[in-house]
Design a protein around this nucleic acid. Structure first.
Lengths: 340, 340
DNA sequence: GCCTGGCACTCGGTATCGTTGAGTGCCAAG
DNA sequence: CTTGGCACTCAACGATACCGAGTGCCAGGC
C-alpha cells in the first residue's frame, strides 16, 4: 500500500508531530535516521502522502500534520505485540499492583487513577455488570419498621443492595423467615434471572418475599443496572488540548457515563483496540483517540480498561500500558482482592 | 463599617462584575438604580473602597474589580435567610427529588450531577462515613474455598464489605457457624468499635471469626474508610475560567478527594457556608469560591453538599440552591430511598 | 529515471507603531 | 459635599512591515 520509504516518512512525521505538536517540515523529516534522502525528495513524497490522505497541510507555507488515516497506518504498523513499557513504567506497574488492595470498586477506581498517571491521559475503567454470576447469598435486613434492605452477594464478590419500602410495618421475625425462604430459592441461581418462590402459606412472609423478588428483578434490569465507570485523571485533558472549548466538550463527554460505555463497547465490538479521531463517530471527540483493552477475572470477561487522549498521543507506550494494566488488573482481581 | 452609599456602590460593582466579568467603571455604577449620584461621586467612593481593600484596579485606566474582601462583604450582606430560588429552579428541584430514587450512593451521585446542572458550577456531595451507626447485620459468605466475604449492614442502610483471604480452605459449614457467632456478638453494636468475640471452642470457627474481626477493625479504621465523594459537572470549570492552567489546577484538585474533603470540613468547622478566594488557604483555588451545606439523615449529620465555582459566582442563587438541595436531599434520604 | 540543489513564492507569526476610547484623578465651581 | 470639566493613562485594536519556515517546481547530475 505504501512503499517502504513513504511508510518511513509517514512514521517520521507522526512521531515528530506527536512530540512537538507542530507541523513537520521536510527538512526535519530528512534528518530522521534511516532516511538517506534530501528534503526535496521528502517533499515529493510528502506531496504524494497528502494526495493519498495520510497527511494534511494546515496552510500552504507550513509543514504536514498526520490525518486520522495517517495515524491509523502508523498504529497498524506498530508491532502488534505492542511496544514494551520502559523500565520506569513497568516498575511503577509492578509496585502499584504489589500494594494495591481493597474491594473491587476501590481497586478499579485506584487503577483508573494509576493508569492516568502512568500514561498522562485520562483513564477509564469499566466494570461490566451484566454479571451472569451465581448468587451466593441473599439476605433481608430490616432497617426500620417498614423498611427492609435486600442484600445480594454474587460469586464475583459483588454486593448488590436494594431498599424495600413496605406499606405496612413488618415484624423482624417475619423478615427473618422471608430472608431464609428467599435464600433457599434464590441462592445458587443466576442473578438477572431470579426465579419465583412458591407461597409459603404465611401471607405476611409472602408479601415481603414478593416485594424482595420484585426489587431484585428491577435491580437486575438494565434501567437500574448500568455498568460502573471509573474515570481517572480527567484533568489531564486540560493539558492535552489548548482550546477551552475542546476541553469542555471532552470533559463533558467523560461525565456522560452511558455514552462513554457505549463508545468503548462499540470499539471493542469492532475488534479494535484503538479508535482514532473521527473513526468513532463521536463528534465532540474528533480530536481524541481511545485505546481499550478488556480484562478478565477468573477467565471471564469482567470489564474494560481504556485511555482517552488526543489523537496525537504516544500510541506505542499507551497501547503497552493499557495492555499490561488490563492484564495485571485481571490477575489481581482473580486472586482475591486482598492478596498481592 | 461601610456607610450605606459605599455598600450600595460595592454591591453594584460586585453584581455587575459577576455578570460581565469586566472591570466596572464609575459610569455604569452611577447608572445603577437607587444611586442618585454622578459618576464623579462614585469615583471618589470607589477610590475609598479601593483604599479600604474592597476593590482593586487591574490597571490605572480600567474599572474596578471586587477583591475577596469585597465579595465577602457582599456575601455577608445578603439576607442570611438566603435568596429564594427562581420559579424555574425550584420547579427543577421539585421534579428532581420527585423522581429521584435508588440507593444511597446512586442518589448522592445523581444529586451532585443535578446540583451542577442547577447552578452551572461543579458540585460536590460528600458522604460522611465516620458512621457511628449501629450494625444491623453481619454475614460471612464464602466465595471460594479459602475466600470469604464479610458483609456488614448498618442502620443507615450502608453496606460495607471486605474480602477475607484465609490461609486454608474452610468448609461452608464452618463459615456458617462463624457467621452466626459473629452476628450474635456484633449486631447491635457500633461500627467502628467492634467488640471481641469469646472463643467458641471450635478452633476452625474461631480462626474465621478472628480474621473477620480483624478485617472489620481495618475496615472501620481511617485508612480504608474515607468519606465517599461524588463530583458532578467538573466540566463546567472549563467554562468558568479561561486560563487553561487554572482549569487544569482546579480539575486536579477536584480529583484529590482527600484534600477536597479536608477543605470542605475546614470551611464547615469555621462555621462558614461560603469560602471566598484565598480565604481557604488552598493556593490553586485562589480564583474559586466554595459554598457548602451539611445535610442530615434522620436528624443526624450525614454529609455535605457543596459547590465549587469562580470567585465571581452568583452567590445569591448558589447559596439558595445549595441550601435547598441539602435540605431536600436529607429529607429524601430520611424517608427511605425508594420513597418520594 | 530518479534524486537533488537552487530558487521564487506563500503566508502565518511577530514586532512596531499609532490610534482610540474607556476610565481615572483632580480641581474648581455650584 | 457634589458635580461637571479636563488632562492624563494605558490596554486593546488595527495597520503595516518584516521575517523565515516551508513549499512546489525546475533544471542539472548521477
Amino acid at each position: 500500500m505504501l512503499d517502504d520509504r513513504k511508510a518511513a516518512i509517514l512514521r517520521a512525521v507522526v512521531e515528530e508531530y506527536i512530540e512537538t505538536a507542530q507541523p513537520v517540515g521536510s527538512a526535519s523529516v530528512a534528518r530522521a535516521p534511516g532516511l538517506a534522502v534530501s528534503p526535496a525528495t521528502v517533499r515529493n513524497e510528502m506531496g504524494a502522502l497528502e494526495r493519498d490522505g495520510y497527511l494534511a497541510q494546515p496552510h500552504t507555507s507550513a509543514g504536514r500534520i498526520p490525518t486520522d488515516k495517517g495515524y491509523r497506518f502508523f498504529v497498524d504498523s506498530l508491532v502488534p505485540s505492542g511496544g514494551r513499557l520502559d523500565v520506569v513504567q513497568s516498575q511503577q506497574v509492578r509496585s502499584f499492583f504489589a500494594q494495591a488492595h481493597g474491594e473491587l470498586e476501590r481497586m478499579l477506581s485506584d487503577t483508573s487513577r494509576f493508569l492516568a498517571g502512568l500514561t498522562d491521559y485520562a483513564a477509564v475503567v469499566v466494570r461490566d455488570v451484566d454479571d451472569p454470576a451465581t448468587v451466593r447469598s441473599v439476605q433481608l435486613v430490616s432497617l426500620a419498621p417498614a423498611v427492609v434492605l435486600v442484600v445480594v452477594v454474587l460469586a464475583s464478590g459483588a454486593v448488590e443492595k436494594r431498599t424495600l419500602d413496605l406499606t405496612a410495618d413488618v415484624d423482624e421475625v417475619v423478615v427473618g423467615a422471608a430472608s431464609a425462604r428467599l435464600a433457599s430459592f434464590i441462592v445458587g441461581g443466576r442473578f438477572g434471572s431470579v426465579g419465583s418462590v412458591p407461597p409459603s402459606g404465611d401471607p405476611a412472609v409472602d408479601t415481603v418475599v414478593t416485594a424482595a423478588l420484585a426489587a431484585l428483578a428491577r435491580a437486575s434490569s438494565d434501567a437500574d443496572h448500568q455498568p460502573q465507570v471509573f474515570v481517572g485523571g480527567a484533568s489531564r485533558m486540560a493539558t492535552a488540548f489548548d482550546a477551552v472549548g475542546t476541553i469542555r466538550q471532552v470533559l463533558d463527554f467523560l461525565e456522560q457515563q452511558y455514552v462513554l460505555v457505549t463508545l468503548i463497547k462499540d470499539v471493542l465490538d469492532r475488534g479494535l483496540s484503538v479508535a482514532i479521531g473521527a473513526e468513532h463517530g463521536v463528534e465532540p471527540l474528533a480530536d481524541c483517540s481511545i485505546v481499550v483493552a478488556p480484562y478478565e477475572i477468573e477467565g471471564e470477561p469482567a470489564g474494560t480498561v481504556g485511555i482517552l487522549g488526543p489523537t496525537r498521543m504516544h500510541y506505542e507506550q499507551t497501547l503497552a500500558a493499557v495492555a499490561v494494566v488490563s492484564k495485571r488488573l485481571g490477575h489481581a482481581l482473580s486472586k482475591g482482592p486482598e492478596e498481592r
